[in-house]
């Protein structure tokens, strides 16, 4: 049964790789910020699933930290790009 989780995680990591491509290609920094934001979301999903897959239920805390904090760096980038920092 744990196989399902690992398969899902593999897909999510593959999506992260795709988003990395956008991060590299992205012609402007906003594109890169978008890719970073996407990667954050995907990593949160990955972490939740992996915690269950390893049967280590308290690993979910890491995902919450991620979900809360990855936003901060996005805001810094946005504030810099908007010329407001």
């Amino acid at each position: 049964m744990t196989e399902i989780w690992f398969i899902a995680v593999s897909f999510l990591v593959a999506f992260i790789a795709i988003a990395c491509i956008r991060l590299v290609l992205g012609p402007t920094p906003p594109d890169r910020a978008v890719a970073l934001d996407t990667i954050n979301t995907l990593i949160v999903a990955t972490m939740i699933l992996l915690g269950v897959a390893y049967r280590q239920l308290i690993f979910v805390d890491v995902a919450i930290v991620y979900a809360l904090l990855s936003f901060v760096s996005t805001l810094y980038i946005a504030r810099y790009l908007g010329g407001e920092l």
Binding site: L23, P29, L36, L81
Partner: peptide, 9 residues
């Protein structure tokens, strides 16, 4: 700036 984003990644 892009390098900083990549450092974040």
């Amino acid at each position: 700036l892009s390098a900083a984003i990549a450092t974040g990644l």
